[in-house]
């Protein structure tokens, strides 16, 4: 919701007689300052793990500490920005054995439900689209902290984890589940 629409929405809420006057705030994920990252971990031969990240993504969320179940999150990832610190491997990950970047350059997550599970934890379920395939996906999210930063902005930060079975997303090569960890810090709009 944009700034200009918010007073209108609040007005509608008041007219409808909603008791809560507190509105969920809109946050932009701080990708510009790189206080957010989307990381993946893949098992290597059962011996160890390869980690990597998606360098380019963007997104936003709404968050109301008084009513966290009304929160929502939306993220869009440039799959071509996959970076495992080995260009030959990344080139392979971009081709149609894995991410199929030419055909599907974007992966998206749109939350559909937030279920509070503890004082600082929640499960966020949403539609995750990867390689053109959309499946429901649930992230385990922990609230880390929030408040005024020293430079005049208001921030909230979370960590989310989940695991995906790449065969659900039609990857031609499947070397086991991929664990995802998202560090997300948002600046209030």
């Amino acid at each position: 919701m944009t700034m200009t629409l918010r007073p209108l929405a609040m007005g509608i809420a008041l007219v409808m007689g909603m008791t809560s006057a507190v509105q969920a705030d809109d946050y932009a994920i701080d990708v510009k300052g790189a206080h957010a990252s989307i990381n993946f971990t893949a098992n290597h031969l059962g011996f160890s793990f390869v980690t990597g990240r998606f360098d380019d993504f963007d997104g936003s969320f709404t968050f109301d500490p008084e009513n966290p179940e009304a929160s929502s999150v939306s993220v869009e990832i440039d799959t071509g920005s996959v970076n495992s610190n080995h260009e030959a491997r990344d080139k392979h990950l971009r081709n149609d054995d894995f991410l199929n970047v030419d055909a599907h350059p974007k992966a998206t997550f749109e939350s559909t439900k937030v279920e509070v599970t503890g004082e600082k934890t929640a499960k966020i379920t949403g539609d995750f689209t990867l390689n053109g395939v959309t499946n429901p996906l649930t992230l385990d999210v922990e609230y880390i902290g929030g408040g005024d930063d020293p430079w005049g902005n208001y921030r909230q930060g979370f960590v989310g984890t989940t695991s995906i079975d790449v065969s659900d997303y039609n990857f031609k090569k499947d070397y086991g589940n991929i664990d995802l960890t998202l560090h997300v810090e948002g600046i209030r709009k």
Partner: peptide, 12 residues
């Protein structure tokens, strides 16, 4: 130096 800046295009 700067070889990394070519990532993403050089292999292509």
């Amino acid at each position: 130096p700067g070889a990394k800046s070519l990532k993403g295009t050089i292999g292509w």
